[in-house]
Amino acid sequence: MQTPAPFEYERAGSVDDALALLERHGPEARLIAGGHSLLPMMKLRLARPEVLIDINDLDDLAYIRLDGDAIAIGAMTRHAELLDSPLLAEHHLVFREAERVIADPVVRNRGTIGGSLCQADPSEDLSAVVAALGAELVVRSRTGARTVPARAFHTGPYETVVGDAEILTEVRVPVRPGAGSAYEKVERRAGDWAIAAAGTFVTLDGDTVADVGIGLTAVGAPHFCAPEAEDALRGGPATEDRLAEAARIAAEHTDPSGDQRGPAEYKRHLARELTLRALRRSVARARGEGV
């Protein structure tokens, strides 16, 4: 069995503790939460941090709660908790639908939202969800906290704005009264990474699309979102033709790369097809139709 290269292990008892450890050990230190992305990379020796800072004791970062006009999700909240959360299901079904197809139930017992977002895999599901919902991410350092829009969080594949001595502590998802949302994913097999996936929300004012968010993953959509498509849809009627046009625009702005999951043209096709499907169901849900 594959084994990681040697490293030093530290366990943080608090966020401040973790920040202090990060500062002390410098850029070769890595935080480890669920570890289900990092440890396999370390076993393959594709990642070799010198120090691992275990933040699994930071139970105070595991929460999902209503906080003003947002749902605040602690970065250490596990996927299983996100899947089971009645609060998230009530406001944003897209979370539940995405969580249902992230890895598998046992992995979801360990993996965290913070870890998933910070790993910044270009096929990561929650990156598309938080991009679609226009979430804000709270990043803390020793000197304070800053809030980063989800759509500005990722700076490239496996790269985020989180600095060497910073921690993502919270994800703030706006409550959007009346919103309908949905997640559509195609994978090669249960538990596999997405070939392509789309998460969307829609709010309606009568039959007019008052607001819309479109998130895409695994298809090279800049910042996991499709603002051009949102602009095209927002402010007009939620007709099938207009949803289809928005889906077309969303796909047009993707830049997928071909791999064993499929050729670029197929992924672009999926971007369009899945965006359309997600939008349809989001609109139906916004209309109060049970789908």
């Binding site: 069995m1 292990y9 366990r11 480890i32 570890g35 289900h36 440890l39 396999p40 691992l52 275990d54 699994n56 299983a80 139930p105 046992v106 992995v107 017992n109 360990r110």
Partner: peptide, 20 residues
């Protein structure tokens, strides 16, 4: 798969140190 703190986990992806 074994249980850690009552939840099934994949023990090939957990450090013994993390289970302390």
């Amino acid at each position: 798969v074994l249980w850690m703190d009552g939840e099934p986990v994949k023990s090939c992806t957990v450090l013994a140190a993390m289970a302390a």
